[in-house]
Amino acid sequence: MAESPRGAGIHCLIVTPEATILDVVSRSVVLPLEDGQRGVGRSHAPFIGRLGAGEVRITTADGAEAGHRVFVDGGFVEVGHDVVTVITQRAVPAAKLDLAEARAALAEISGRPAVGADALKSKLRSQRAARELVRVAGRVR
């Protein structure tokens, strides 16, 4: 997978343990890295990054911004040779998210007690992810 198979554009893959859920050629990709978003255009320098929770926004080759928006919950991204590979344990297309469900999940996590530093850390982490999920789900409508 050294080069983009279809020539122009960035080859973007989103891979989860169960399947490859997206495999498209795009113009640009915005990635939710752990410490903020990062845009990737053509001929970007190769990097490997850790992802936080958030949405991957893909502008398709014909320039449609609404092309693909996918919520990912952590994971990694590898960028190189105009190939962007997102590896995550959970990826849901934004159109399939349910706002009410996301809100309920956030409320449930927020209400959960956390004792000890580790539990608190993991609670804050899942809370952040749930909040991000609500935000992404809310933007769809």
């Binding site: 752990e34 320098a45 190769p46 990097f47 490997i48 990054g49 990694f76 590898e78 190189g80």
Partner: peptide
């Protein structure tokens, strides 16, 4: 030669998440 990757935030931090994954 051009495959020298940058790591965000760092190789160690990625490894910390990568190994459990």
């Amino acid at each position: 030669a051009s495959d020298d990757y940058d790591f965000y935030p760092s190789a160690g931090s990625i490894l910390e998440e990568l190994l459990p994954a």
